[in-house]
């Protein structure tokens, strides 16, 4: 069980810009939530709050009912964050060394670090590339290496900030497969994305941000009609059904077949 929630979360930058205005939201264990919104609507700032990278100007972020700042290290283990730019996340010279960065920070025994590295890299299908420098991987592989770095921390919630940006069709499918597999294993998934057509078929909740506040929250079918009012393309507007949107079902992939 890992219930992540925010209560009346406000964030104001030093220049006075209000990035978040009283966001109250809870993520149930094992859920798959998509956070949508136009540029500058506060999604990334919100994600960074969930990982404890920013301190709220007002309000709080709770993990299982306790403020994440009570034990920030434990909160960051529980809530992993995969950054938008995978390259900015790499600190190791090889894929394996980068994956080991998190577990080593937790001061785990070397054998446990090695076990987690192998497990995470096998999960994302990069075990064979463990000695490769992360910067020389393809776009999809880089994103998967970044996911492995987070998985090695054994998180119960994983946040993805624009996981598909800059990826080709194959890269998108690789990352999407990881998301779906993690969700099937019970990990709570929260994804920030503009590319709703790739995600909504797999999500059970869609939250719409606008100017730092949540303006719609519900099932993808319920929230989709509100999207275009807030500068987000509605992938269901062409009369498509939600299940037709999946990029993972080859037989049903009518849009890309």
């Amino acid at each position: 069980m890992c219930r992540l929630e925010t209560r009346n979360l406000h964030h104001r930058f030093p220049d006075g810009t209000e990035a978040l205005r009283g966001v109250t939201i809870a993520f149930e264990p094992g859920s798959f939530t998509v956070l949508a919104g136009a540029n500058g609507s506060g999604k990334t700032v919100f994600a960074r709050h969930l990982n404890g990278l920013y301190r709220p100007t007002e309000g709080e972020v709770l993990l299982d009912g306790r403020s994440i700042f009570d034990d920030l290290s434990a909160a960051r283990q529980a809530v992993g964050l995969v950054f938008q730019n995978a390259e900015s996340q790499f600190v190791g010279q090889t894929v394996a060394q980068d994956t080991a960065f998190g577990p080593e920070n937790l001061n785990l025994p070397a054998a446990e670090v090695a076990r987690r590295v192998e497990e995470s890299l096998r999960t994302v299908g990069l075990w064979e590339r463990r000695d490769t420098p992360p910067h020389s991987l393809s776009g999809g592989q880089r994103r998967r290496a970044a996911i492995a770095g987070v998985l090695a921390m054994n998180p119960r919630v994983v946040l993805f900030d624009e996981p598909f940006s800059g990826l080709d069709y194959s890269g998108v499918r690789q990352v999407l497969e990881q998301l779906v597999r993690m969700r099937e294993r019970g990990t709570t998934i929260i994804v920030i994305s503009h590319q709703l057509d790739k995600l909504l078929a797999h999500a059970d909740r869609l939250v719409l941000f606008h100017q730092g506040a949540v303006v719609a929250d519900g099932s993808p079918q319920d929230v989709a009609p509100c999207l275009e009012r807030h500068d987000v393309r509605n992938p269901l507007s062409g009369g498509l059904r939600l299940e037709q949107l999946s990029w993972l079902c080859c037989g049903e992939d009518s849009r890309h077949g």
């Binding site: 990982n51 990278l53 290290s73 960051r76 900015s88 600190v91 001061n107 070397a110």
Partner: peptide, 21 residues
Amino acid sequence: RADDIVYAMESRCYSDVRTAP
């Protein structure tokens, strides 16, 4: 990029007390 890497390290619990080599 330096800012990004600091955030990335923080989010993965950067600590001076790490697994000993």
